[in-house]
């Protein structure tokens, strides 16, 4: 299978205010194949979100290289970065904050389409189809983010991420702000979309139980390092590291 994402020796060091440094991410390497669902799990502060944000080029890495569909994007700027964003999209943790309060959901979803040369009518049509695909009606396009529930907003955010037909979607704790029943609905939506479109997911999450059914492969992170890697069943049934055992015990 094609490698959609390759991360090599990624590092992020934050300077500490009182001097010294924090190794938020320390030498992280992994690959993600096209259509694969990979989860990164770990407690808060383990560096998983920092990894996601570096891959999405929202913060610059201190060291290491990132390849998206074979092309290096570690230093990408301007046009090159815009091109990378047609292949890679992100769904954020808090759905309501991820839409501009002054714009309708439809504006948010169609923004990438218009930026990449679609006409307004085309974008409107695609937006309506995407909303339907994500289980919302077309009239949600005219609503503002504060007028819809968290679950509906996250569906709209997924619609936005899919608009440009990316090959990779990064889900940064995309279900943690939602309640349990809505979580299950959103996960089944993501599953369905993955089967229809063959998108690869990078699923950032702290809930090991949720990952078990959903993902093909799991990476466990602890204090900025990868401590374990394997299929969910391998990791959960036969954890090698003490930290992973604790993480599993804390759920069960």
């Amino acid at each position: 299978m094609d490698k959609i994402l390759q991360v090599r020796h990624l590092k992020k060091i934050f300077p500490r205010q009182e001097g010294g440094e924090i190794f938020a991410v320390d030498d992280v390497s992994f690959t993600l194949s096209a259509g694969e669902k990979l989860a990164i799990i770990g407690e808060s502060g383990s560096g998983k979100t920092t990894v996601a944000r570096m891959i999405a080029r929202l913060i610059p890495p201190t060291a290491g290289r990132i390849f998206l569909a074979g092309e290096e994007i570690t230093q990408a700027k301007g046009k090159q970065l815009q091109k990378a964003y047609t292949q890679m999209q992100m769904v954020f943790q808090n759905p309501v904050d991820s839409f501009d309060p002054r714009c309708t959901l439809g504006d948010g979803i169609s923004e990438s389409l218009i930026n990449h040369g679609r006409s307004r009518e085309q974008a409107k049509k695609i937006t309506e189809n995407l909303l339907a695909l994500c289980g919302l009606t077309a009239d949600f396009a005219d609503r503002y983010p504060h007028e819809v529930s968290g679950g509906q907003c996250q569906r709209a955010a997924i619609a936005r991420a899919l608009a440009i037909e990316p090959q990779l979607v990064i889900l940064d704790e995309a279900t943690s702000a939602l309640d349990v029943t809505v979580q299950a609905e959103v996960l089944s939506l993501l599953n369905r979309l993955q089967q229809d479109r063959g998108i690869a997911y990078l699923f950032i999450c702290h809930d090991i139980a949720m990952v078990q059914d959903f993902c093909d492969r799991v990476i466990v992170m602890h204090e900025g390092r990868i401590v374990e890697e394997g299929t969910p069943d391998e990791v959960i049934n036969n954890p090698q590291e003490e930290y992973t055992k604790n993480l599993i015990d804390s759920v069960l």
């Binding site: 999405a56 929202l58 815009q82 964003y85 047609t86 890679m88 999209q89 992100m90 954020f92 943790q93 808090n94 904050d97 991820s98 839409f99 501009d100 309060p101 948010g108 923004e111 990438s112 930026n115 990449h116 955010a157 936005r160 440009i164």
Partner: peptide, 17 residues
């Protein structure tokens, strides 16, 4: 720092936009 600005950036919007 707002997530919607990052989302807009990932939608390929230029600085001016």
């Amino acid at each position: 720092a707002a997530p919607f600005m990052q989302a807009a950036k990932m939608a390929g919007s230029s600085t001016f936009k």
